[in-house]
Amino acid sequence: MSRPEIGRQEEFRLLVEQHSRALFGLAWRMTGNQQDAEEVVQETFLRAYRSFDRFDGRAQPGTWLHRIAVNCALDLLRTRRHDAGRVELQAVGSDAGDAVPARDTAPGPDRLLLSAEVQRRLTAALGRLSPTERAAFVLRHYQGCPIEEISRELRMSENAAKNCVFRAVQKLREALQPLL
């Protein structure tokens, strides 16, 4: 391996160190499971590496990687869309059914039951969102992206992006409202 190539890899390794965890969080929110999230992170870095020479530092590396990750996750969701209804949100190292931590330090049995049911319904509702609805919602709700940015990232009109977020919220609301 040539010296510039070694330097390039070292530079890239620092990016991997700094951004892996954040990208995993984003990918997990978008895909709903650990295995897919890890696949998205790997694919993100591979795509990023291919175009690393063109990354000239004008954008923040985090923003650049974040955009690639969103697209990787969307691609993955689209190719697995037939399974979208069965997407399960799983916490790392725990079963999906009891993953929501209650706010109280000693929640009563009623509250635990309610939390589990909220979790179950939320998991199902998120799994029923279309890939673009889910992506738009994650970007808006968890990443705090304004609609204008979401429309740019998902390559759709601002109205379409707004509709996606709104439909996602509606679906989540329909699923959870009876319990809350």
Partner: peptide
């Protein structure tokens, strides 16, 4: 009611890899 729903969404545990 909307805020309660979105607060529940916020409580979805983010896994630590």
């Amino acid at each position: 009611s909307l805020e309660r729903v979105l607060a529940a969404v916020d409580q979805m545990p983010a896994p630590d890899p």
